[in-house]
């Protein structure tokens, strides 16, 4: 596929992991990414970490945004990071996390390779800008 601007759009997957069904934020972010000109794939609800890893690898996404509000982030997100590593996709995927994630847990997630964590009240603009500036070159 060719683009006249000579620049490929950023491919993003917005993913819901685990049993948590709070998807308002995931949908708002998906729409905002689309409005910003990114290609957006939504995982759907109730996905296991390995399902998300497989989808992200198959779709060859640049950005993986994981939304979680259930408190199970400390178990589920590291599993996704390990999975990406296994497929050799960790280095060229910008992983973001969004939702209710206490400050105390953030260092650990960042150490596992999550590039940024966006808590409640983050503006759409801030998230979009972060992706624009940090998405890996294709």
């Amino acid at each position: 596929m060719s683009t006249e601007m000579g620049q490929q759009s950023i491919r993003c997957m917005v993913a819901k992991v685990g049993l948590d069904g709070h998807d308002r934020g995931a949908h708002v972010v998906s729409r905002a990414f689309r409005d910003a000109g990114f290609e957006v794939i939504y995982s759907g609800l109730h996905k296991a970490p390995e399902e998300i890893v497989q989808a992200a690898v198959q779709e060859d996404v640049d950005v993986l945004g994981i939304s979680i509000l259930s408190g199970a982030h400390d178990t589920l997100i590291p599993k996704i990071m390990d999975g990406l590593e296994e497929y050799g996709a960790k280095a060229d995927t910008l992983v973001l996390a969004g939702g209710v994630i206490p400050e105390e847990d953030r260092e650990e997630l960042k150490a596992a390779g999550v590039a940024a964590i966006f808590g409640p009240g983050t503006s759409i603009e801030e998230t979009v800008e972060f992706v624009r500036e940090n998405a890996p070159d294709r």
Binding site: G18, L19, H46, S70, G71, A72, D74, L76
Partner: peptide, 22 residues
């Protein structure tokens, strides 16, 4: 907890990380 809400037993694969939370 989430597994009970979704009709899953605590030993189900999808229950990991969620048993007894909330």
């Amino acid at each position: 907890d989430m597994p009970s809400l979704m009709g899953l037993d605590s030993d189900h694969r999808m229950s990991e990380g969620e048993v007894g939370k909330e």
